[in-house]
Amino acid sequence: MSESVVLITQDGVRLDGRRIDELRPVKMQVGVLKNCSGSAYIEQGKTKILVAVQGPREAHPKHIALPGRAILRTRYHMAPFSTDERKSPAPSRREVELSKVIREALEPALFLEEYPKTVIDVFIEVLQADAGTRSAGITAASIALAEAGIPMRDLVTAVAVGKVGGKVVLDLNEAEDEHGEADMPIAMMPSLNKITLLQLNGRLTRQELEEGVNLVKKGIKELYSLQKQALRARFSGAQVEV
């Protein structure tokens, strides 16, 4: 714990110059891969993630198929070169957990009952990790699913809030995540105003919890409009190549 790092100044300016309620610069693109039903690429600060959707397709192995709906499978994975120290490519316990909570964050938005006996696979590959990878992964996965043409109740949009230098802030970067006091990723279906992912690592008071839930909505609103922009760009004829 290096308590000496000043993560936020008296007048509320963060290490990278952002205010407490500002997102990092975000770039999103839909339809970046040719061999998938849907795909998306997102950059949020230095975090870079590529998402591919395959399916709906026949379930393999067959016995996992359900008669009444499609199965959603998600794989959150970090590339070995995505972190400062090489990450072993074998899935870690963290990746197993995140794959589960990400699936549960996306599932409520999908009309899975439209595709019985099939599987929809979502592959989230973190190419560079600089905090906020599960939330950026969800934000990108949801537009990739939309590109794949899977009917949805709403998009799913995610971002973290946290506590840094005693203040509740939006969208932590790596230094803030590492040295800050708390990290709380939240995903929502913005138009329906429903929370689909909620996690917290760190220490928050009741009031900070409340502040965090309020602050996160500002970030989600901004990201939601970027998601829609990216989808519109994809379907307005402007083809994007990687």
Partner: peptide, 21 residues
């Protein structure tokens, strides 16, 4: 002290905002 030190939502349903508090 009233501090919350970890939260995990589990399962494929959703929460309303006031549920959190």
């Amino acid at each position: 002290s009233g501090i919350v030190s970890s939260i995990q939502k589990s399962g494929s349903g959703t929460l309303e905002e006031p549920d959190v508090l």
